[in-house]
């Protein structure tokens, strides 16, 4: 495993609290929206492991929660940089390696907001949609190369991310925010990170070798409504 995060504290915690001490892993504290830093950790990965078989891109922010006409250009640029530029920069460096290997699987974490709109989430919906546009196009360019590119589109997931959204919706009573979001979800609960992980594992495996250019939805019926 090669584990990259811009949050040093969380990365250290992952190393010390969650993963077995003997796991063979590289940890990079880096900004994956920074071109030079991306190049550096991809190069180091190649030096150390010799290739990249699976690339899973989870970096992203929801941004603030407000009406579409209330964003500033600066906020739009920050979201673009974090959610889209990072996808592009990592793919740019990882794709040629996988192409040379004639093997590899890229998974981009988008969200159900990539397939529908939700009031007050225009920025997140916009960048999520953009990820699918990039994924589909890159998939068509690589259809014969042995490299597969797909996206995962989960419903809101139990995470600090969603806690922020709950707070943003009802600053004085985040519990109300949670209830409001749950009411959108047919099962009335968030997805769990472990449930996303199973899908990521499946789609990145050889068992999914004809699955390419698709969005794998994990939403408990959210989009069926």
């Amino acid at each position: 495993m090669v584990l990259v995060d811009c949050n040093k504290k969380q990365l250290d915690k992952l190393k010390s609290d969650y993963l077995p001490h003997d796991s063979e892993a590289l940890y990079f504290h880096a900004d994956c929206a920074n071109e030079e830093e991306v190049q550096k950790y991809v190069e180091k990965t190649i030096d150390f492991f010799g290739g990249v078989d699976v690339f899973v891109h989870c970096a992203g922010i929801v941004g603030s929660i407000k009406e579409a006409d209330n964003w500033s250009a600066g906020e739009i640029m920050v979201a673009f940089q974090t959610n889209i530029m990072s996808v592009f920069l990592n793919s740019k460096d990882v794709l040629p390696i996988m192409k040379k290997q004639q093997n590899g699987s890229i998974l981009l974490l988008a969200s159900v907001y990539a397939l529908r709109g939700v009031p007050y989430h225009s920025l997140y919906a916009m960048t999520s949609h953009a990820i699918l546009g990039f994924m589909k196009t890159a998939a068509l360019e690589r259809a014969h190369s042995g490299v597969r590119i797909n996206a995962i589109a989960p419903a809101p997931t139990t995470s600090p991310f969603m806690e922020e959204v709950e707070k943003a919706l009802f600053p004085s009573n985040p519990q109300l925010g949670r209830e409001q979001i749950h009411s959108y979800l047919p099962f009335e609960r968030y997805a769990e990170p472990e449930e996303i992980a199973e899908s990521v594992l499946f789609v990145s495996s050889h068992r999914a070798k004809y699955i390419h250019g698709t969005s794998h939805i994990i939403d408990d019926g959210f989009l069926a409504k």
Binding site: E195, S199, A208, G221
Partner: peptide
Amino acid sequence: FLASDRARYITGTSHIIDGGMTAK
């Protein structure tokens, strides 16, 4: 995969297996 417990949060979806056909 879809029939297994690993997909317990997946319902109401269309699982596409098309080698990029619908990306076009």
